[in-house]
Amino acid sequence: MTEEQTQALAAGRSVDIVVRLTSDASAACGGSPVGTGAAAMEPSRDDGTSYDWQESVGEPSSMTGEPSGTAWRRAVVSLDSTLPEAETLFRSAIVSLDAIPGNEIEGISPLYHVSNFDGPDAMAAVVQLHTRLDARSLIGALGTIEAAHADQIDLDLVDMEGVSSNEPNCRVPWPSAAQRAQVLAPWFDMDPDARLGGDPVSFLLAMAPDAGRVGVLSDDWILGGER
Rank of each mutant, 00 (worst) to 15 (best):
P67G: 09
D98C: 07
A122M: 08
N103M: 00
S61W: 11
S50Q: 11
A125Q: 00
T70W: 03
P120H: 13
L83G: 07
G58N: 03
G69F: 10
G58A: 05
A93I: 01
E59Y: 13
E87L: 14
E85S: 08
V76Y: 07
I100E: 02
E55N: 07
V127E: 01
S62Y: 12
P60N: 13
D47W: 11
I100A: 01
S96Q: 09
S81A: 09
P84F: 04
P101Y: 08
S96T: 04
T82D: 11
S56C: 05
S78M: 03
V77H: 06
D80Q: 15
S68L: 15
L97H: 00
G69A: 11
S78D: 04
R91Y: 03
G119A: 11
E85C: 06
N103E: 08
P84L: 02
A71G: 08
M63T: 13
S62M: 13
E59Q: 14
G119S: 08
I108F: 04
P120C: 07
D52Y: 10
V114T: 09
V127C: 10
E87W: 04
V127S: 04
S68M: 14
D118N: 13
W53I: 12
R74C: 09
P67Q: 01
S50N: 10
M123V: 15
A122C: 11
V114F: 02
I105T: 02
S56I: 05
A71Y: 06
S109C: 07
I94M: 09
D118C: 12
W53D: 06
D121Q: 07
M63F: 14
W53F: 15
E66M: 09
A99Y: 06
D121Y: 10
R73E: 10
M123G: 06
D46R: 12
Y112I: 00
S56M: 09
E106L: 09
T64V: 03
S78T: 08
H113N: 15
A71I: 07
S92Q: 08
D118R: 13
G48T: 00
S78L: 06
G119N: 11
G69H: 12
I108D: 00
A93K: 01
T70N: 01
D52T: 14
F117N: 14
I94T: 03
G65P: 13
